[in-house]
Amino acid sequence: MHPTNIVLLEFHPEQDNLTHDKELRDGLSVALRMGNTIWLANDESVSLERVTLCEEDSRGKSSFTRDHTQFRLHDYLDLPLPPHGETREDINEADIEGLACDNKYLWLTGSHSLRRKQPRPDDGAKKAHKRLCSVGADGNRYLLARIPIVEEAGAYTLVKETGQEGKRRSAAMLRGDEHGNELTALLKDDEHFGPFLHIPGKDNGFDIEGIAVAGKHLLLGLRGPVLRGWAAILEVALVDDEQPGRLKLAPVDAEGALLRKHFLDLGGLGIRDLCAQGKDLLILAGPTMDLDGPVHVYRWVGGAQPGSEPVMHADQLERVLSLPYGVGVDHPEGMTLFQSGDGKEEALMVVYDSAAPSRQIGDSTIVADVFPLPARRKRGKA
């Protein structure tokens, strides 16, 4: 399907703090629209990027953004590693792969994944073999957190703390360190996911890509593992810990379970992003391995309020979009609801990893696509 609109996302080059061969716009991993505010992140950074949506052009076919502001996660959260390693270009990335909002907090998740080094074109066989044996963890990837969000002068912004005594809201993250957190500790002996915690994400290992708010719970979409073709969503609840700035897992049901597991038949694809649409859940599905496509958007009717541990077969899910992708470029990675200027047509804005040169404009602008979102399919009585 081809996009009907585009959004030009403009970043300030002076705030581009990645390595010399990577730009902020080059690897967008997530997007979230709130009014005229759009939140974005690059998967190799430790910051969130905010831009402001301007009016559409006269034809209603494109929109523009301005006022790029960068929010460094270390200003709000006590991440286990500093922003940079031994050199300025050695970034201790958070690999932010999901954003969601409950009107009080911006919730965010890192991938929680390991990564394997990749051989370079000029490597000999011995060096290439050595790289493929090298598996490491970026400690800031074990991030599951919230940051208070407030409205100022018609735009949304982040604060470390706000509110009065008794109703105070503060930034906090799930208890853990550079080796893992309470969630990975809980999954260590899990019959489904425990064996995959030590496998890199792009090898069908454990890899969170997507977060959505489901009432008082959170839904975490897994790019991997995909189990015999079945993708998974984890449902958890987080509450304040006794230690300031920390959260802990809480029961998700009356029996005291700390985790619910939802399995979905996405035709062998993993989950690349989640987006709540009222009571429904939109799922961006793509390859769990390092492949170009296919990429589809599914609607799980009632998925934003699951209430149990369903196993969703293919015929219980609606495939609402099939997205274009490139060869080695333009991998759909993040999505957010996006209404037209008149507010009548609901759509999805999609951002891409490995953006193609044709998507890049000037020194600091990137093109995001907007696709019309089909209406919910009518169902007969069960």
Rank of each mutant, 00 (worst) to 15 (best):
A257S: 15
L247W: 08
R223P: 03
V320Q: 02
I208M: 06
A172W: 07
V252R: 05
G256E: 11
M173W: 06
W107A: 02
V297P: 00
E86P: 09
A153D: 13
D177P: 02
L32S: 01
E209L: 05
L284Q: 01
G124F: 07
G221Q: 03
K22C: 06
H198I: 11
P310L: 08
E346F: 01
K22H: 08
L144Y: 01
L373K: 01
G85E: 04
E89D: 13
E333N: 07
S111F: 06
L249R: 07
K167P: 07
F196P: 00
Y325I: 00
S364I: 10
P310S: 09
A231G: 12
P80H: 06
V135L: 12
D122C: 13
D21F: 11
L323Q: 06
T288I: 10
M34L: 14
P82F: 06
D16W: 04
L249E: 06
P251Q: 12
Q305F: 14
L174C: 03
D57F: 01
T288Y: 10
G166Y: 06
V367Y: 03
N181V: 05
L73D: 01
A285N: 03
T52V: 15
V30E: 11
D330F: 01
F64G: 02
Q360D: 08
S340W: 10
A171P: 09
G286N: 04
Q360S: 11
S47Y: 13
A128W: 04
G85S: 10
A125N: 15
D207G: 04
Q360L: 15
L53C: 09
K104I: 09
L266C: 11
A185M: 12
E44L: 01
V159G: 11
M34R: 08
